[in-house]
């Protein structure tokens, strides 16, 4: 074999590997976002359909804002709520699915399966991608105490208010999603919210956490909560 053939083959291999890497970067940065946005839209449509088929409940004058009955257990990998965080953008809304498996988190935000249900006593904990798959929690560090996190399950609006800005911790710190998280400053049992994502932006060495408490619950018939009105 001549030197020419060897040099040519090695060069061609280098070019091929380079192209492959560029394509992979395009896939991770761009294509996962396209796929996730399509998938999230589909999940939102599923939810809207599901809610449209629900029977209309008579609005009771008294007790309309009383604690709603505990919802049925959420179905694994199925959407059950929509989350709005005005701080992340006025049009920012994402479906929340049950479970935190990798495949579930590609379709939206994931609710930690063993934590409280929406609006119930305990800690409603949700995880989301910081980067890739639509970058849902890209602006996570911008969240501040006092920011509203609004969720709806089709029957009620739940407005949570963030009490503590991003807290950086280790991936093994599972206490952050406890019913009363130790580091959050909460001392009594209550209706709390925990959001988790990764930190640094493109890494996985740490996690960012924010905590909030349930501020108000109201039936969807009474219109959008204050936090979502412009």
């Amino acid at each position: 074999m001549s030197v020419r053939v060897i040099v040519r083959t090695v060069s061609e291999l280098c070019i091929t590997v380079g192209t492959l890497i560029v394509l992979f970067v395009v896939y991770v940065l761009f294509w996962t976002g396209v796929k996730a946005d399509t998938e999230m839209d589909r999940q939102v449509d599923l939810l809207q359909d599901q809610w449209a088929r629900q029977p209309v409940r008579p609005t009771t004058a008294a007790g309309a804002t009383a604690n709603p009955k505990p919802p049925a257990p959420y179905r694994e990998a199925k959407p059950f709520a929509l989350m709005y965080i005005p701080r992340l953008g006025f049009t920012w809304n994402k479906p929340v699915l049950e479970g935190t498996r990798t495949s579930t988190l590609k379709k939206g935000l994931g609710h930690y399966a063993n934590t409280a249900q929406l609006g119930q006593k305990g800690n409603f904990a949700v995880a989301g991608h910081r980067r890739t798959y639509g970058d849902p929690f890209k602006d996570f560090p911008k969240l501040r105490a006092g920011d509203a996190v609004v969720l709806t399950d089709g029957a009620h609006w739940y407005t949570y208010v963030i009490d503590q800005g991003p807290y950086r911790t280790l991936p093994t710190d599972v206490q952050v999603i406890d019913p009363v998280p130790k580091k959050s400053g909460y001392t009594r049992a209550g209706r709390y919210l925990t959001l988790t994502t990764c930190d640094p932006e493109w890494g996985h060495s740490h996690r960012l956490i924010v905590w909030g408490h349930l501020e108000s619950t109201k039936p969807v018939e009474s219109g959008k909560p204050e936090a979502l009105r412009r």
Partner: peptide, 26 residues
């Protein structure tokens, strides 16, 4: 080739990167 890469190879390779670790666990 690009189709096979985007449809099968990259979805397999991507979870090996750290961007999927967004939860706290044991």
């Amino acid at each position: 080739v690009v189709y096979v890469l985007f449809q099968y190879v990259f979805p397999w390779a991507e979870p090996l990167l750290p961007f999927n670790d967004v939860t706290v666990n044991d």
